[in-house]
Design a protein around this nucleic acid. Structure first.
Length: 435
RNA sequence: UCCUCGGUAGCUCAGCGGAAGAGCGGGUGGCUGUUAACCACUAGGUCGGGGGUUCGAAUCCCUCCCGGGGAGCCA
């Protein structure tokens, strides 16, 4: 039994297909049944004079998402969706579907998210999740080509990595543990062991964030490389993004097109993606602050950028822009102090254009034991849970850098989808853990 | 946590102090190939919960619950 996506090789032949009723239309002596099997949608045509009365009547009464089996001849037909249709001969109802809630009309987001398990069957969600699949494979492909080793970090951790974000607490026998909010601290020892490593794992953040850029559970890709400085880290990030965007345009053009329908800036957005090439612009935090002042934004050097500031900066550039060397007091403990200015650290954020915010955040890591110890103290972090981490600076301390990139934000930016909750099959949001 | 908008038919919404409405979906019938088909008829409601004001409340007020958008924080 072939899949619908394979039917171009079966034109003129009779096939038997199994699938769900996506939609149904009728006119006089014809019944059109749109059959969906997960790989595609096929129009099956039932003609009154060419099928039995019982088959015609069954075709006339099919419910949306009922599971059926159809046999018939595959043929080319210009006006059919996809250019192929089936002249159906027999029809069998395998499992009925009464009152399917998601009709081919408009629905609100609350309604759809509560039925996410069914919503995934619709064509837009289908396109998005296929893009996600292609994107994640592209990331793996990129790192494999460069000889990186995939290292899986633990999800249950004894302490916070950065001491900032809210953590999900879990009972761990007679103790408490936390769901990981980053694999980075584990990638550093892995880099000392294997040189070039990366992980792709969920990160959990118990922040009460209700915006289009936030999930409580998101997939975080984090490379870590020995003997790499900040500049090399940014090179790696831009090469990676360029590779992934090219792969997506090449393999998922149809899906991107479908997702772009109705988006006003879609043409411009696709041009931007097609022309994406290294190098991306790089400006320092200090230059960014000067730029904000020039734009009339009231902002004090030393503060973190808010959503408004990020938007003003990213609007100035047509592709993602690196902002590097932030003030030390606004950053986590593990970032390396700038040798040219002890008030700064060797880090960067990559801001996506069009309001999608920070999609990559990275840094060169502090490799000086004394400075790292001082930073832990400055951030008021407990020392004992980090002793193992300090060992990296005791036994052959090495220059190294890495970054984290959020899969959902990246996919939202590339596909032009407004809210990242659609970019993951089963989103976890502040007030939503079902289904 | 704060700001803001909302909750009326299965869905999307209109009505905003004086007899509960539309489109879609469901059902029935019609239509010689449809493209979110179309046409006709039809069923379908504790107007989020509770309290108050009023001769009269979906409509005004209070309160609670639920959801959307945003801020902070972050990927």
């Amino acid at each position: 039994m072939p899949w619908i996506e394979e039917l171009k090789d079966h034109i003129g032949k009779e096939v038997c297909l199994r699938g769900w009723v996506y939609n149904r239309r009728d006119s006089g002596k014809v019944r059109f049944v749109l059959l969906r099997d997960g790989t595609g949608i096929l129009q099956c045509v039932f003609l009154r004079d060419e099928v039995s009365d019982s088959t015609f009547e069954l075709a006339d009464n099919l419910n949306q998402e009922a599971l059926i089996e159809v046999t018939g001849e595959v043929r080319e037909f210009d006006r059919a969706p996809g250019g192929i249709e089936m002249g159906a001969k027999t029809l069998r109802l395998i499992a009925d579907s009464k009152d399917y809630p998601i009709t081919p009309k408009e629905h609100g987001i609350d309604f759809l998210l509560s039925r996410r398990h069914l919503w995934l069957r619709s064509s837009r969600q289908h396109a998005l999740i296929r893009c996600r699949d292609t994107m994640i494979r592209a990331f793996h492909c990129f790192f494999e080509k460069l000889g990186f080793i995939l290292i899986d970090p633990p999800m249950i951790t004894p302490t916070s990595c950065e001491g900032t974000s809210e953590l999900f607490e879990v009972a761990y026998f007679d103790d408490v543990a936390y769901l990981s909010q980053s694999g980075q601290l584990y990638m550093e020892p892995a880099a000392a062991a294997f040189g070039k490593v990366y992980c792709l794992a969920p990160s959990f953040r118990a922040e009460k964030s209700k915006t289009r850029r936030h999930l409580t559970e998101f997939w975080n890709l984090e490379p870590e490389v020995a003997f790499l400085d900040l500049s090399g880290d940014m090179n790696l990030a831009e090469d990676m993004l360029t590779f992934v965007v090219k792969r997506l345009i090449e393999k998922r053009g149809e899906e991107l097109e479908l997702l772009g329908k109705g988006q006003e800036n879609f043409e411009a957005h696709m041009k931007l993606l097609e022309r994406l090439e290294p190098p991306f612009d790089r400006i320092s935090y200090t230059e960014a602050v000067e730029f904000l002042e020039k734009k009339g934004v009231n902002f004090k050097w030393g503060e973190k950028f808010g959503a408004d500031e990020e938007a003003v900066i990213s609007e100035e550039f047509s592709k993602p822009v690196f902002v590097h060397r932030y003030p030390k007091k606004a950053t986590p403990f593990y970032m390396k102090e700038d040798p040219d200015n002890p008030e700064l650290v060797l880090n960067f954020d990559l801001l996506a254009p069009e309001g999608y915010g920070e999609i990559v955040g990275g840094s060169q890591r502090e490799d000086d034991l004394a400075k790292l110890e001082a930073a832990i103290e400055r951030c008021n972090l407990p020392r004992e849970p980090l002793e193992w981490y300090l060992d990296m600076r005791r036994y052959g301390s090495f220059e190294h850098s890495g970054f984290g990139i959020g899969m959902e934000r990246t996919l939202a930016w590339i596909t032009g989808v407004h809210h990242i909750r659609e970019t993951i099959p089963f989103p976890r949001l502040m007030d939503r853990i079902y289904p």
